[in-house]
Design a binder for these strands. Structure first.
Lengths: 114, 114
DNA sequence: TGACAATATCCGCCAAGGCGGATATTGTCA
DNA sequence: TGACAATATCCGCCTTGGCGGATATTGTCA
């Protein structure tokens, strides 16, 4: 049950919920997340580290860029929670405006123009 | 998304997960929870208040006894999380021993022998 | 190699919330 | 009403973790 508490702790913060909601779209680079969330770089990076440590996301480096994606091979609870998040966070206006920011950033500058 | 974060915050504590797992069995009196969890009365009561404030449980007084049960009429997310909890916490040994403690207390002293 | 860009980590500060003993509240019953 | 039992709340203490600016790390490319 300790493991489960750790998994839920990661969800007990609005910024991390927003990050997970964005990652449901697919893999994203840190600079894309910063642009979509409109948060300072250190804050964004700290939350990503938290999500990594609690088993929610995986990272992979590609040159200077770090890409984060939802962790596919983790605790079954995480997988089922992902479905719930997809269903319940998508409606949120916080999420749709973040998505717009993301699309705009991707069009204007592209991921490699970070 | 703030609402969702509040819902998940309630799950971000092992004691509260244990309480919810017990309440999946049905309505319980505070003294039964104290016996099953083997926690101080003030600690137990505080967590119950937290669960009440975050929409997870309802209470009802019956004489001197306060009974707590899962809140049926809340956010859809809570209902779906209840199913997940039932599936994922039931296996935990922390839960099965708490259940034994509960059964023992109910047999030995009964809820009104608190 | 040196400069730069992307990211991670460090730092000091602060609020939320965990703990359990002490106290207050509330309902019951003689 | 007074005593008691069940529960809630208060209190002081302490840890976790939020924040964002400053600094360290790491990879790239000329």
């Amino acid at each position: 049950m300790q493991k489960e508490a750790k998994i839920f702790k990661a969800l007990a913060d609005e910024t991390r919920l927003r990050i997970l909601a964005l990652l449901l779209e697919g893999e994203l680079c840190v600079c894309e997340l910063i642009a979509a969330l409109e948060l300072p770089q250190s804050t964004t990076s700290r939350h990503l580290a938290y999500l990594r440590n609690s088993g929610w996301v995986q990272d992979s480096r590609r040159g200077v860029w770090m890409y984060y994606r939802l962790n596919e091979s983790e605790h079954a609870l995480i997988q089922e929670l992902n479905s719930l998040l997809a269903k319940h966070l998508a409606k949120s206006s916080a999420h749709t405006t973040a998505l717009e920011k993301l699309r705009h950033f991707q069009k204007e500058q592209g991921p490699q123009a970070c």
